[in-house]
Computed example of a mutant assay.
Amino acid sequence: MERLKLSRIALQALAWVGLWVVVFMILGGGNDAPLRFFRRLWPLLVAIAAVVIINGAVLLPRLYFSDRRGWYVVAGAALVAAATLILQYGSVPDRAFPIDFGRGARPRGMGMATLRYLLPVATAFLGSSLIEVMRYAGYREKQAVQAQREQLTTELKFLKSQVNPHFLFNSLNNIYTLTLLRDEKAPESLLRLSGMLRYMLYDSETEAVALSREIEYIRNYIALLQLKDSRGMNITADLDDSRPNLPIAPLLLIPFVENAFKHSRVEDIGVGFIEINLATTSQGIEFTVINSVPAIPTPLDGVGGIGLDNVRKRLELLYPNRHQMSIESAEERFAVTLNLQLT
């Protein structure tokens, strides 16, 4: 990759050198013998090539593309000025400029004498900068398009998983059973399901919701799943809601809980368990979900759920450099911990 970059810069330097050779030949420098013409011209050509290479290999990547553009302007102006002054005052005294502005020794004062060197050097510097900036802009645009495509793909999978038909079917069946038994939990369970659907269909369209809404969704999810076993399940949920207004992306935490229910066989009261813990910090949250791992793997539920890999992609898109996700997989337990900076 680095060789390709250096090759591109060297090719551009050669192109600017060739351009100014043609310009000087058109302006009359080609009337001399070729050897004499290039002997007069070579200091300027070397300076042009050096300025283009230094600009492309050092100044642009280290200053301009690193968002230090004020320093880039200063350094670029200093580079062009230094090259011009070296050409004006450091070349061999009796070597004339490729185009004669008059007979005799070249003028050594400011004005036209300096401008004749400044113009080609500055043009090469500005032109090479423009080309590289346009190339970089195109590269960033391609990156943005690719990131947008990946985000759309991830969001599509996420949206498909929001309304889990299997979960809804079981919840409705359980609530229907409660109504037949005239259980007092039926109205409350129906309200829980209604609140979850409202959250999934409407609140999730926003970029961020209050942490209290996400916690409420998790609690409702756990409560509805517990309806399918009257014996109860070994589930503990310690969800800290002391900072309810912390902003968080909607439906970000539920995949961890859903994953635990899918793979833990929590219905096995003897060995199955799920532990959910959410603690708030000064800047965000620490969310941990631990579940049992059965000796015989559970058949995976292929309907609903986006999986931890897709959750990781979503975190990278929504919270770049603001999250840390760790997974601990052992023979009898599986644990995932998410540290998330929200403010």
Rank of each mutant, 00 (worst) to 15 (best):
L79R: 02
V80R: 06
V80Q: 00
A81R: 07
A81P: 07
A81Y: 08
A82H: 03
A82S: 14
L85P: 08
L85T: 05
L85F: 13
I86V: 15
I86P: 12
I86S: 15
I86C: 13
I86D: 13
L87Y: 11
L87A: 01
Q88W: 09
G90W: 13
V92T: 12
V92W: 14
V92N: 08
V92P: 07
R95N: 07
R95M: 14
A96I: 10
A96E: 04
P98H: 01
I99W: 00
I99E: 00
I99D: 00
I99M: 00
D100S: 14
F101L: 08
G102K: 02
R103H: 07
G104N: 08
A105D: 07
A105R: 09
R106H: 03
R108C: 11
G109Q: 02
G109R: 00
M110R: 14
G111D: 01
A113N: 02
A113T: 14
T114H: 01
L115N: 06
L115H: 08
L115A: 11
L115E: 07
R116D: 00
R116S: 02
Y117W: 06
Y117P: 05
Y117D: 04
L118P: 05
L118K: 06
L119P: 01
L119C: 01
P120K: 04
P120S: 01
P120A: 05
V121L: 02
A122W: 01
A122E: 00
T123F: 06
T123I: 13
A124G: 09
F125I: 09
L126P: 03
S128W: 11
S128I: 06
S128L: 10
S129L: 14
L130T: 15
L130W: 10
I131M: 08
E132A: 12
E132Q: 14
E132N: 13
E132L: 12
V133I: 15
V133R: 13
